[in-house]
Simulated assay, not measured.
Amino acid sequence: MISPAARDALQGWLDAQKALKGASDNTLEAYGRDVAGFLAFITQHNAEAQGIAALARVGVSDMRAWMAFTRGEDVGARSLARKLSAVKSFYRWLSEREGFDATAVLSARAPKFQRKLPRPLAPDAAQNLIDTLDMQSETPWVAARDQAVVTLLYGCGLRISEALGLTADVLPMGDVLRITGKGGKERIVPVIAPARQAVARYVDLCPHDLSGNSPLFRGVRGGVLSPRAVQKVTQAARAQLGLPASATPHAMRHSFATHLLNAGGDLRAIQELLGHASLSTTQAYTAVDTARLMEIYRNTHPKGR
């Protein structure tokens, strides 16, 4: 049982994450679950309601006990690291607000884990997947819609949430799109001709009114198209082609970045196109290795040739 004071503090932190960092609803929900789980454990562990003063007294032994308990619940190292990150962020905010020393919590070490990278598709496999999406529905406008969405993921490197968040006021689609990504960060992405053509074909066939700021991509009944619907049709297409389970909508965005990099694209330019806040994220996302970076360096640096 979490005390009212702890619950209020948790809600205050979540509100701050949304207001200051633009965290999405899904992210906030995950943060809330992770920190609430920690607070519930600390309450049971210390056998008393955890008000702000009690939370300020959480020590190294408490953190070790929580991490051991969490691992004992069959939680993997990666998930525990995510939970610990949320708890640290909460304590950083709470300690600044309440004026206590949170070193015991902030110094807790996350378990090491090997980062899993999404696997890119080969260029021909990506194109085959897009082509096959056009055959997954007997309703022409639905088939055109699915193909248009995934073409935008691969052709522009959009997140699925960004593609499905587009509104009809982008029509007719031009050479660039202004995308609002994570944290409310805006970026400009070029739109290749096949993507524009795929969207135009969908718009011509769509039976729903596409005007103003209404959603661009619609479900069968006219509501906003759900990510799950795109995932399901992609799953059907990859099964038809015999592609691995890693051939997901997200893998199309990853393939966009990887294919650009392999063609000699600049890493910082790809970072901007993807909307990553830091270059290190782009390096992990595109599975850049030292050999590839050195090859780019030797081929492009004036002193290296």
Rank of each mutant, 00 (worst) to 15 (best):
143 A>W: 11
144 A>I: 07
144 A>F: 09
144 A>M: 07
144 A>D: 09
146 D>H: 14
147 Q>K: 15
149 V>P: 05
150 V>G: 00
150 V>E: 14
150 V>H: 00
152 L>W: 08
152 L>R: 06
153 L>W: 08
153 L>S: 09
155 G>H: 10
156 C>K: 10
157 G>A: 08
157 G>S: 13
160 I>M: 13
161 S>T: 14
162 E>L: 07
162 E>M: 07
164 L>W: 11
164 L>R: 03
166 L>P: 13
167 T>S: 15
167 T>F: 00
168 A>L: 09
168 A>Y: 03
169 D>A: 12
169 D>H: 14
170 V>Y: 03
171 L>P: 03
172 P>Q: 11
174 G>N: 10
175 D>P: 10
175 D>W: 04
176 V>K: 09
177 L>R: 10
177 L>A: 11
178 R>A: 02
179 I>V: 15
181 G>V: 00
182 K>T: 03
183 G>V: 09
183 G>S: 06
183 G>F: 07
184 G>T: 03
185 K>M: 01
186 E>M: 01
186 E>R: 08
188 I>L: 15
190 P>S: 12
191 V>W: 13
192 I>W: 12
194 P>K: 01
195 A>T: 09
195 A>N: 12
195 A>M: 12
196 R>M: 05
198 A>K: 08
199 V>A: 03
199 V>N: 06
199 V>R: 05
200 A>F: 01
202 Y>M: 05
202 Y>D: 10
202 Y>S: 05
203 V>A: 00
204 D>P: 00
204 D>K: 02
205 L>K: 02
206 C>H: 02
207 P>Q: 01
208 H>N: 05
208 H>C: 07
211 S>P: 00
212 G>Q: 08
213 N>G: 02
216 L>M: 01
216 L>I: 01
217 F>H: 05
219 G>D: 12
220 V>S: 04
222 G>N: 05
222 G>D: 03
222 G>S: 03
